[in-house]
């Protein structure tokens, strides 16, 4: 009987060695350990044997069974692994093929620029406020200390709906609106659409965007203006940029200034962006005129403040090197999608 067992075990080992698929291993299992399997049959046939024979053969048969089961398990695992490897090999991809496109769009470059500016000013404690595109003459001119005969009031400069209503020519009217509604001290920026009577060309658009800023409080002075706007320029254009203020004139600020930043393209050596001067004019600013503070209903002796205004298109054009303002309003998808 033992010889028989060894023969079966040998046969099983040989078949296992030859097995390559899960089916092969399953066949071997059935063949040996199944209901009618050869090893099962031997175990079953033991009933006719003597107690001693039973004990001897039983131990041998059970050992053979355990060994076979172990071998089978190993083989099953090996065959499975081989099968999986073969499948994986079949599934090999050319990973350099392009990915399946997932579309996402882009915000308009003027939005992108506005948001960048807003982000910088948010960091500096400025809150965004907004005002209407259609304004009154009082908010747009009178309250801003614009002389009665100022040419900007002409119908050749400003779009009117009536004697009293117009399209705002700057975001400055919302300085007055803000002073009327917010309690000082406050720091706000006011982005928005503005309109001037300009025929469109590469550098002019009858509609454009501005961002205004206003700080009102007690003891606010021109050194604060310099400090804040210098900080803004560095956050927006890089820590290395320098700023300078040049005296200028606006009806709604006094003292007034234009702020230049050192050319962020050439670093101040002179190039086509800064027209060789090393400086780029970036915004107008100044100490809010007492007449404006007063028109808004605050006491100019108690409150002082400063304001600035800049063209968002101008900033976007400088930053992205866009050479024609009309591109912003043509809305060619090939243009806009560059600002993803």
């Amino acid at each position: 009987m033992n010889a028989e067992l060894e023969k079966i075990l040998k046969e099983a080992k040989e078949s296992l060695a030859a097995a390559t698929t899960p089916e092969d291993t399953e066949n071997i299992r059935v063949n040996m350990l199944g209901k009618n399997g050869k090893l099962t049959m031997i175990l079953r046939s033991m009933g006719s044997l003597s107690k001693e024979e039973k004990k001897e053969l039983g131990a041998a048969a059970n050992a053979a069974k355990r060994e076979l089961e172990e071998l089978l398990n190993e083989k099953v695992a090996a065959v499975k692994a081989a099968a999986q490897n073969a499948k994986l090999a079949m599934e090999k991809l050319d990973v350099t093929e392009p990915g399946t496109p997932v579309e996402f769009g882009a915000e308009h470059p003027l939005t992108v620029t506005t948001n960048e500016l807003v982000k910088v000013f948010n960091q500096m404690g400025f809150t965004v406020v907004e005002g209407p595109e259609v304004e009154t003459v009082w908010y747009n001119f009178d309250a801003l200390n614009a002389p009665v005969n100022h040419p900007s009031r002409d119908m050749t400069d400003t779009f009117y709906f009536s004697e009293n209503q117009l399209l705002r020519t700057h975001t400055s009217p919302d300085e007055v609106r803000t002073m009327q509604t917010m309690k000082p001290p406050f720091k706000v920026v006011i982005p928005g659409r503005c309109f001037r009577y300009d025929t469109p060309d590469a550098t002019h658009s009858p509609m454009f965007h501005q961002m205004e800023g206003l700080v009102i409080g007690e003891g606010i002075n021109m050194a604060d203006l310099k400090g804040a706007l210098d900080r803004f320029a560095k956050l927006m254009f890089g820590e290395h940029v320098k700023t300078r203020l040049r005296p200028s004139h606006f009806p709604f600020t006094e003292p007034s200034a234009e702020m230049d930043v050192s050319c962020f393209k050439c670093g101040g050596k002179g190039c086509n962006v800064c027209k060789g001067t090393g400086w780029i004019e970036i915004l107008g600013c100044g100490m809010t005129h007492p007449h404006v503070i007063k028109a808004a209903g605050l006491d100019p002796e108690k409150y002082t403040g400063w304001a600035f205004g800049m063209g968002i298109e101008r900033v976007a054009m400088l930053k992205y090197g866009v050479d024609d303002i009309r591109l912003f309003y043509e809305n060619d998808m090939r243009f806009i999608s560059q600002f993803k």
Binding site: V128, K187, G217, A223, D230, P247
Partner: peptide, 21 residues
């Protein structure tokens, strides 16, 4: 104007965002 100092005043003004924005 270049001789006027740069100052960053300390204040406790907080930023808010309008719902529309």
């Amino acid at each position: 104007y270049d001789k006027i100092e740069y100052s960053i005043p300390k204040d406790n003004i907080t930023v808010s965002v309008s719902k529309s924005w």
